[in-house]
Design a protein around this nucleic acid. Structure first.
Lengths: 174, 174
DNA sequence: GCTTGCCTTCGAGCGCACTCGAAGGCCTAC
DNA sequence: GTAGGCCTTCGAGTGCGCTCGAAGGCAAGC
């Protein structure tokens, strides 16, 4: 896994491709210089919970800016039940820390390729109470396996692309 | 990157999710026991070129079975110009080694998240001749960067999911 | 001859995940 | 008071990548 260290730029312009660019930049901040990532550490978890110097509550525009997810999409997520928010006196959405955490969590799941239906199911289970823990764990384990499979696919694709790059000029076949 | 070694099964049943399941199983055959992958080696490349004990030419049904891509999708790929094939006397598609190699290559690119439009562009450039090598290399480098970014995203998601699994029972937020 | 089965083309349809536009409300600044 | 800006809801539209069905051809086997 050689160079391509585009690390310095904190907020790349590919929002269309990856709505969670900003979350990724948060992840970047806890990643090592060589691009490797801690498998699981407190710093990362704290990053997920988002910085402490944020205001107590945020408007949808601020959440959009922080997470890189459009306000339209945030409303869509709420409409389909993925994230609940409060409202102020004039009916505007209020995101507190917990709501922001949910947005972040949902975004990570989506980023890992989990279909919205599955995320939705998970959120439903959480709302349903503690007796659903087994099924929730099952969903997470399934998703973990899916992530591992994707990692393997991507490593294979990386090998193929690297081969093409090193021998580039060859034909399309193989 | 701990266990979840579902390695033994050669042909998992998730064709819908990953049309390239069989290609992945070929990749598996060159992967180490612990799931790690060689970044780039001759064996993998040979695997991409597909086994030597295949018939010289294949029908679309055979290609579908080998690659895990449906005949419908193979026809679609041909229709949009991603893969050319020959025809027999009665108009049926004939896939030779080269065509099979192209199917495999295209599948790897798709698996890495490259949009069809970009794959299409790449194939066009190959057809256009050697003077397009620079642009081809550019496309490949872009895709390499995209793969690396995806790997990072997935590793982050894996960390988040692992955190949830190890602390499971918690709320949905964070 | 007739069935079976795999193939052909063409065009339409589908599922997912947004994405956008219209029409309007509320608050602040000038 | 009015303009600007950010917000609201609702429903429709978009783009991607398949996915499918219909209608029919061709060759082998009974």
């Amino acid at each position: 896994m050689t160079a391509v260290s585009t690390a310095p730029e904190a907020f790349p312009g590919d929002l269309q491709v990856h709505p969670a660019a900003r979350l990724r930049s948060i992840l970047d901040s806890v990643a090592a210089e060589d691009g490797s990532l801690p498998p699981l550490n407190d710093e990362l978890i704290r990053a997920l919970r988002l910085p402490d110097d944020l205001p107590e509550t945020l408007g949808i525009g601020e959440v959009a800016e922080i997470t890189g997810i459009t306000a339209h999409t945030l409303r869509y997520y709420e409409r389909i039940g993925l994230v609940d928010t409060g409202r102020d006196a004039s009916g505007r959405r209020i995101y507190d820390r917990e709501a922001l955490g949910r947005v972040a969590f949902v975004t990570w799941l989506r980023l890992s390729g989990m279909p919205i239906a599955a995320v939705s199911r998970y959120v439903e289970l959480v709302k349903a109470g503690p007796q659903t823990q087994d099924e929730r764990l099952g969903l997470l384990l399934d998703q973990r396996a899916a992530i591992v499979a994707q990692l393997r696919d991507l490593q294979g694709a990386l090998a193929v692309v690297d081969y093409k790059i090193t021998t580039y000029g060859g034909s399309c076949g193989a």
